[in-house]
């Protein structure tokens, strides 16, 4: 699953075209924007691949404040399925929630 997720999200170019459509972007910190969520996932997965864990409250807040509205999806020039990536990652976090929060 992690491999599938990475295949899609590693295409993110950080261009920020997705941001203006996101209802939570007014929270200002980038973890509350689509590109921020995608890159949080990349950081998390990269560390996990090295056997390390990411202790970040803001990453969790960012991921779990995504409304799943999908407004960002059509604006990604790289074709990243942002809502699906965030949804899959939420599911992964829910499954391993204790491990992540500790």
């Amino acid at each position: 699953m992690v491999v599938d997720l990475l295949k899609n999200i590693s295409k993110c170019s950080f261009c920020g075209f997705c941001e203006i459509s996101c209802p939570t972007r007014f929270l200002a910190k980038r973890n509350y924007t689509p590109r921020g969520r995608i890159n949080s996932i990349i950081v998390f997965v990269d560390l996990e691949a090295k056997g390390e864990s990411l202790k970040s409250e803001e990453m969790l807040k960012g991921i779990f404040t995504c409304l799943g509205c999908g407004a960002c999806k059509i604006h990604c020039p790289a074709g990243v399925d942002i809502p699906e990536a965030v949804r899959s990652f939420k599911a992964k976090l829910n499954k391993n929630s204790r491990k992540v929060i500790e």
Partner: peptide, 27 residues
Amino acid sequence: VSKDPVVLQLHSMDAIKKSGKTNLVVF
């Protein structure tokens, strides 16, 4: 104000994948 590692990282990147380092992000 944030010192969270993910916030620091997300505010140290740009659209040409340059990445730097910061100790604090202020809004």
